[in-house]
Amino acid sequence: MNIQQISATTSPTEYLSINGRTLAYRTMGKGRPIILYHRFRGVMNLWDPAFLDALAGQGFQVIVFDYTGLGLSDGTPSYNPIDMAADARDLIAGLGLRDVVVGGWSLGGMAAQAALTLYPDHISHLVLLGTTPPGDLAKLAEQLFYDLAGKESYSIEDITALFLEPKSATSRAAAVRSQARIDDRHEELSPPVPVEFARPLLVHGPRSPAFPAEPVLQMLKSTQIPILHIGGDHDIIFPVENWYALNEVLPSVTLVTFPQAGHGPQHQHPQLAADIIASFVRNQ
């Protein structure tokens, strides 16, 4: 199969053994590499294929992976963003990548920020989706996220409330379309993240800071590496208002906010999100 014909629903799973564990990953497209960290309880096949394919269509080599010890990867799992940062570092080294864009959604956005703090020489741009800055927050999360995120499985209503905007008919319809695309992959599915592993992160409920990492905040305040955050105007876990509260102290952060959207803006607007990312990387 020609690499240009490989889509997110057909991309084969590959494996990289490095630093004592094996990372499972998939790649589609060719060009500038972009490595994407997933959300809380996310595995490779839970990205919206339309978003990944749109990025590939914009000239990116898109790389998604399962975190150490989760999905199809082995090793000891951790949801500490500092520990998680090593996954992108090792993919970059093991695959011999250069001039890499690192992205992250939600919890993965925290890991991506940690990666830029720890390994800045490996990263050209940072792309964040529905995540939080470190430090004290101007607006807390909603309890609804904590009530839903620890459920054994998600209904389409749960998915809409968690990742989109149930108040909007347009967003509700986008949730159905996005989930249908995700469900279209049937081969080499990554096992779900065990709920017993994930639930302990939810017991504290809304808190400030959500990401207590002072070195990461200092990096954001001093780096000249271009950073893009794409969010929704009603993100129930990581309100976009917390990024705007730091406007005057983040010299390289560009903020884009979609209206009538929630925690997963790239699933509601896959092509638009990919277009914005591509333009940002080309022009910054």
Rank of each mutant, 00 (worst) to 15 (best):
G20L: 07
Y67Q: 12
Q58P: 01
Q4C: 05
P133L: 10
D90G: 01
S17I: 03
P212L: 11
E241I: 02
T13C: 13
Q260M: 06
P265A: 10
K167L: 06
A261D: 13
G94F: 06
K151L: 13
V43P: 04
G205C: 10
T27E: 15
A149D: 04
R181C: 01
H125Q: 13
T9W: 07
A115K: 05
T170H: 05
M1W: 08
G69L: 11
P270Y: 09
L126S: 04
V249H: 05
S7R: 14
E165P: 00
N242Y: 13
I123M: 01
F280N: 11
A93Q: 14
D121W: 01
L55M: 11
E14N: 14
L52I: 12
V256I: 14
G130F: 08
L220F: 02
R181K: 09
H269W: 13
F258R: 07
G75H: 11
E248W: 03
N283I: 02
Y79I: 15
N45Y: 00
M219H: 05
A8C: 12
L97D: 01
T117V: 01
L164T: 04
L91F: 08
E142A: 13
Q271D: 13
I237G: 02
A112V: 03
R89P: 00
R177N: 12
L255Q: 13
